[in-house]
């Protein structure tokens, strides 16, 4: 396969430089709110007025998607859900779907994981139990029910391989060798393995090579999968980086309220996205970690 990253990681200056690498129309794989979305890059994508993005939720989406949708950057969403969790419905997503402004490909979590795993393995599909009888199937041509070839009269779903153009997430550390420490958030590895290119922001760039450290290495995404890295302190804010800072619940509540109307959402963007530079994005939000 050509066009996949090898091991030449590019170190970018900041989140804006990474946003510039993500072309309009890209099929963009994003983690859920609990698994370190690169919020600083999401803000930068809005500032650069990205268009026609297709978002893939691995396996669900939240604030990152709602911001991009509200800002008009998104044409299509493939996800098992889009919500703000305890803060409620994702208001810009909900309105866009209800007004038919957004194409939505509804999925179910393990189907997305399995589709990415198929790409990881270079095979065209993966089988998955369950799902039969769900209306999700009616809208997904790339999901098929076959008869288990190893045990007849056993209908089973197969889901097509999913290959995002770009994987995008935040992490605690990258190192000078271009490796990224994701810890237990292994869905980030799955997205990175399956995507054609992978861009990561991180809290800190460590000297040396984390693969030399036996304790860190099991949580490392090897640089072979990484296309580019930029440092972005508090780059997941208002979401969390485990062990560094907690989720800013008060801010999510504020957002959920503000974004209920288009006007409130525009005011939110004005205050928290347009008038913010990557440097200023180290918000004063309280950290619980």
């Amino acid at each position: 396969m050509s066009g996949l990253p090898s091991n030449e990681v590019v170190f970018f200056k900041n989140s804006e430089a990474i946003a510039a690498e993500i072309p309009d129309g890209a099929f963009l794989g994003l983690p859920p709110d609990y698994s370190m979305p690169a919020m600083a890059v999401v803000h930068a994508l809005i500032r650069r007025d990205a268009k026609h993005l297709k978002l893939l939720g691995v396996p669900v989406l939240g604030l990152s998607a709602d911001l991009l949708i509200g800002a008009g950057c998104v044409a299509e969403v493939e996800s098992s859900a889009v919500s703000l969790g305890e803060a409620g419905l994702a208001p810009r997503f909900t309105e866009a779907v209800e007004k038919n402004l957004l194409k939505i490909k509804d999925a179910t979590c393990p189907a997305i994981h399995s589709g990415l795993q198929a790409t990881e393995k270079g095979v065209p599909f993966m089988p998955l139990r369950g799902v039969l009888g769900s209306d999700l199937l009616k809208f997904r041509n790339e999901w098929r029910v076959i008869d288990n070839p190893l045990r007849r009269n056993d209908p089973i779903l197969i889901v097509a391989a999913i290959q995002p153009d770009v994987a995008l997430f935040h992490a605690r550390w990258a190192d000078e060798a271009g490796n990224v420490w994701i810890g237990r958030r292994k869905e980030l590895a799955t997205i990175a393995h399956a995507a054609r290119r992978c861009f990561v922001t991180c809290e800190e760039i460590r000297p040396g090579d984390m693969l030399e450290d036996e304790l860190l290495a099991p949580g490392v995404l090897s640089s072979v999968y990484v296309s580019g890295v930029a440092q972005a302190r508090r780059g997941a804010w208002p979401l969390s980086v485990a062990g560094v800072y907690g989720i800013d619940d008060a801010h999510l509540t504020l957002y959920a309220k503000a974004a209920k109307t288009g006007e409130g959402f525009r005011r939110y963007l004005e205050e928290y996205v347009w008038n913010r530079t990557p440097e200023k994005n180290s918000s004063p939000a309280a950290s619980r970690a």
Partner: peptide, 22 residues
């Protein structure tokens, strides 16, 4: 149904289509 009702959109099916079986 976790998807849509009476013209209203809800978050989505999450893992239900699998977990309800498994």
């Amino acid at each position: 149904n976790l998807v849509q009702a009476e013209g209203k959109r809800f978050p989505g099916s999450f893992g239900s289509a699998f977990m309800y079986f498994a």
